[in-house]
């Protein structure tokens, strides 16, 4: 149940990006969430509108990209997908694998809105 706190830091980070790029509204925030990150995507989705209220991220869309778990086996040298509670090598059975992906919790990108309405073709003809 720490998703609200994480959403708050997500909103802070995204708002800083918006500020750096001179944007006042954020349309979309894209996040990569691994099954071993300790974060529940459904709870993030619930907490996000609360964390974003009265900020540049109010009304923004939170897109969460699920990532699969991948492990590298030092014994047979192969990389494979694995399950959260079974990280052994499916090829040779070695238990002591190295996690390559699946624990990420990463702000991938922020979609910023243009503050001024997009120039109408007739009003601002391309020269």
């Amino acid at each position: 149940m720490h998703e609200l706190g994480l959403c708050r830091s997500l909103v802070d980070q995204a708002c800083r990006v918006a500020e750096r790029h001179g944007a006042t509204r954020i349309r979309r925030i894209r996040l990569r969430v691994g099954p071993l990150s300790g974060v529940e995507p459904a709870l993030m989705q619930t907490a996000f509108p609360l964390a974003g209220r009265h900020t540049a991220a109010e009304g923004a869309r939170l897109e969460m990209i699920p990532c699969s778990i991948r492990v590298h086996c030092p014994a047979c040298g192969r990389e494979s997908t694995a399950h959260a509670n079974d990280l052994g090598c499916p090829h040779c059975g070695e238990w002591c694998t190295r996690l390559v992906a699946g624990d990420e919790l990463l702000l991938e990108s922020v979609g910023l809105a243009t503050d001024t309405p997009a120039p109408d073709v007739q009003e601002a003809p391309h020269v």
Binding site: L6, S9, L10, Q13, A14, V17, H21, A23, R27, R28, L31, E104, L105, L106, L107, E108, S109, V110, G111, L112, A113, T114, A118
Partner: peptide, 16 residues
């Protein structure tokens, strides 16, 4: 929706 610019960030949420 007028998603003008997408800014790549690639920063962990727990950086702070």
């Amino acid at each position: 929706e007028r998603d003008a610019r997408s800014i790549e960030v690639l920063e962990g949420l727990k950086t702070h």
